[in-house]
Design a protein around this nucleic acid. Structure first.
Length: 486
RNA sequence: CGGGGCGUAGCGCAGCCUGGUAGCGCAUCUGCUUUGGGAGCAGAGGGUCGUAGGUUCGAAUCCUAUCGCCCCGACCA
């Protein structure tokens, strides 16, 4: 508390957001670090962004290379990563979008632990089935524990002791929590880590129909979630695998480096939800959206049916690669029966509930987005997940007029909620541009003495490289407009 | 788990075969010059050579064991 108060006072002492202060007051003064609730100054000289000019040898694919080079992650051990400040920001952006869309669909957030008791898994019969992929632990009393690879058992246990009547249904609970699966061979950075962050949700319904509505709600909310992240993710009929169930779709992001082969009807990539209002309580409307998305042929190599595919007109057949970023299941009473998740019906009968589970690979999405959106200079973040909305580049650090213009613009961008990253390092233009391109901020405002003489700054789109000159006020207005709705 | 490879400065690597002062590039620090796409010059700091044994007058180098990491394969959100 005290430390926080001190930092706040120090921040206030230099003009609130530090916008007008000269860099590095003295070498001995501690850098201000983030306090809860107090956004740290986002000046590059005060941030922690360890970018690499050279590519680390172990990284094989673009997203892994770029995440290491851009100072987003650092490997702690095989398949286990620290999330450095820039990577953590992206992770949080993705998490926030997932939370927002889940709650819009009426699903309730909670948090279950990473460590679970083995007993519960014996009850469901999966303790032995799961095999070596499950990390097993013992505590000091020699009790058997495990690091959760998923949460069906735990959530069902919570449900069965908390819900007894059909009147409390329907119910969908979810959480975003770290999982551990002891992959034989982790690789590709966060795309296939052993520890990963996943949103997993579980629906509890009285009837199969209700549960299928929950399934549809998830499909629609997932489509919207991925759209907001700038991704084209296609639901594809899938195999159920060890989780079980007879109704399941996987969501695949199209990317040439994907692990799965995908076959789909071009028509499916033309579909978008956009800004349309969705009433998640309207079963018919939700089901209709699902029908739109699942009617065109779209399958992975696991479920691909060449004959069906060949029946499509040739111009609409697309073969490619995809990265799985989510999966939804309806599995009926597979867990509620053995785990005795029962509710009383109107007639007073005790019946097992119908369940489904639904996952989004949050940490994997960071890699998947990069795979889908990068070029030879670095990452190109979609607006929805950019770690900073706007990069501000000062081309003549130390020049009074340029510094003042940057400080003023920085303040205005912050005031407008545009979350800028201000490169105030004493570096040459080329180095600053290279860093900005590498970390992939979608919009860059460049301020130099040349343009400033005419009262102009430059606004550059990372994706296209197009640059436009305008006044600082116009630049702020344009960025505000661009980010409206994000 | 089968096959292959690698551990030497923060990163990328050379040195090992043939044992004898631990090197190069980038990064970092200092100074000067430079300043619109990863600057130049001069100087400086930083490494128990993954770890443990062994052989030897002497080990980064040879031998043994062990740990870690990467790649290919079967498996996976």
């Amino acid at each position: 508390m005290q430390i926080c108060a001190e930092r706040m006072a120090r921040a206030a002492g230099r003009g609130g957001d530090a916008g007008l202060r000269a860099p590095a007051a003295s070498p001995t003064s501690a850098r201000p670090k983030a306090c809860p609730g107090v956004p740290p100054p986002m000046r590059l000289t005060q941030y922690f962004l360890p970018v690499l000019k050279e590519t680390p040898a172990e990284a094989q694919i673009a997203s892994h290379r770029l995440m290491l080079r851009a100072g987003m992650i650092r490997q702690a051990s095989a398949g286990i990563y620290s999330w450095l400040p820039l990577g953590y920001r992206v992770l949080r952006r993705i998490e926030t979008i997932v939370h927002e869309e889940q709650q819009r669909a009426g699903h309730i957030p909670m948090l279950m632990p990473t460590i679970q008791s083995a007993d519960l898994w014996r009850e469901s019969g999966r303790y032995d089935d799961y095999g070596e992929e499950m990390l097993r632990l013992r505590d000091r009393h020699d009790r058997e524990l495990l690091y959760g690879p998923t949460n069906e058992e735990l959530i069902t246990e919570i449900f069965r002791t908390g819900v007894a009547s059909y009147k409390e249904l329907p119910l969908t609970l979810y959480h975003i929590q770290w999982k551990f699966r002891d992959e034989i061979r982790p690789r590709f950075g966060v795309m296939r880590g052993r520890e990963f962050l996943m949103k997993d949700g579980y629906n509890f319904d009285l009837t199969k129909d209700d549960a299928l509505h929950a399934y549809n709600r998830h499909m629609v909310s997932y489509i919207r979630t991925y759209e907001r992240m700038g991704l084209k993710a296609i639901p594809m009929r899938a195999d159920s695998g060890p989780i079980g169930g007879d109704n399941t779709h996987e969501f695949l992001v199209l990317a040439p480096t994907g692990e799965s082969g995908v076959y789909y009807d071009r028509a499916v990539t033309d579909l978008t939800l956009g800004e349309r209002a969705i009433d998640y309580g309207d079963r018919a409307a939700v089901a209709a959206i699902c029908t739109d998305w699942t009617t065109p042929y779209a399958r992975t190599d696991e479920t691909h049916d060449p004959a069906l595919f060949a029946a499509l007109p040739e111009a609409r057949r697309v073969e490619g690669r995809g990265i799985e970023v989510g999966q939804i299941f309806y599995f009926g009473t597979k867990y509620s029966e053995p785990l005795k998740a029962l509710v009383s019906t109107e007639e007073g009968e005790r019946v097992p509930v119908h369940m489904g589970s639904h996952g989004i690979g949050v940490s994997r999405l960071v890699g998947a987005i990069i795979e889908a959106s990068h070029d030879d200079r670095g990452i190109v973040w979609p607006e929805g997940v950019a770690p900073f909305r706007v990069g501000l580049v000062n081309l003549r650090q130390g020049d009074g007029a340029t510094d003042a213009a940057c400080a003023a613009l920085y303040g205005e961008l912050r005031a407008a909620g545009l979350d800028p990253l201000y490169d105030d390092r004493d570096e040459r233009a080329g180095a600053k541009f290279a860093t900005m391109d590498l970390i992939g901020l979608p919009w860059r405002i460049t301020v130099g003495p040349r343009g400033l003489a005419a009262g102009k700054v430059e606004l550059t789109a990372r994706r296209s490289g197009e640059t436009e000159e305008m006044s600082p006020a116009e630049a702020v207005a344009r960025c505000t407009e661009i980010y409206r709705g994000h």
